[in-house]
Amino acid sequence: MAFNIVKEKYRNKISQVTIGATKEEGGTRTSTVTIGGEEALPYLHFEGNIPNRPVTALEVWDIAPPGWNECFNQYYGDVYNDVGEWARKCVEEYGAEMICLRLKGADPDEDNRSADECEAALKKVLDSVGVPIIVLGCGKFEKDNEIFMKVAESGAGENLLMGVAEQENYKTLTAAALGYKHAIIAQSPIDINIAKQLNIMIGEMNFDTDRIVMDPTIAAVGYGIEYGYSIMQRARFGALGGDKAMAKPMIGNIGWEVWKTKEANAPVSDFPEWGEQEPRGINWEIVTATSLLCAGLNIAVLRHPSSLAVVKKTIDDLMKPNSY
């Protein structure tokens, strides 16, 4: 008797979000990315259509990042002070499919840069590369609300992915993204109830919730990755079971989290039994990223070029059909 594979029936699919706009679409990007649209749990191609591959981004800052591990100097040291060239290197040499511009220079505790300076940084990146752009504020609510509108305006037409909206601070960014037609990142503090509520509140401002990318806040391996993982998993179960408010693609700041850990940064002299620092950090980033891809991550924001190469290859393998 023929073997019949048991297939789960899903009632809903993840919304599909396109980021970036080409010349024909009113922007200046040479490529766009489309994420989401899954009709089954991650990579269960035999159960439903997984129309879009997850994408990788590399993180660039508008200032030379204080505190990044010295191992990054050989890749980015020559361009740390030129955000446009930094972005170009990420795309042309290292193969990033998106650039994630973090406007950390606006942070009052860093360079306290003005909205105009932030706008100039975004312009440089837009001029240097053709891939779609993610723009993140500095993380301080008051300052971010000063720069979001200007940044959204200067990126008008480019269909940016702007972040982050949080429960306590989502209105300015939502209004800016709404006004200039950008997609938005809704970030929740490892809390699925807040994640859902935030999506609803953004929708109540007449923002199209099918333009939301959720950032459930992830952690690195060894630092509570299982909390982020299980929230992403539960969000996907809910979404595919019919929960529209949870049916959004997801983004994770992998590099940001991984390169804070002792395991990624400690010199070999401190822990000889751990092995060389740089490959250790790369592996930490790869394992964190691939784990979260399996939970449904759609955009992996990475930091190390070698991690990016391996994660892209992993995504290629995960996207090979396994239909029966």
């Binding site: 699925i192 109830n193 859902k196 509520q197 609803i200 809910g238 929960d243 408010a245």
Partner: peptide
């Protein structure tokens, strides 16, 4: 059966 959020009644109806 549904993931809690503060607007759970509205979400159920919507």
């Amino acid at each position: 059966l549904d993931i809690y959020c503060d607007s759970f009644v509205e979400v159920y109806k919507d």
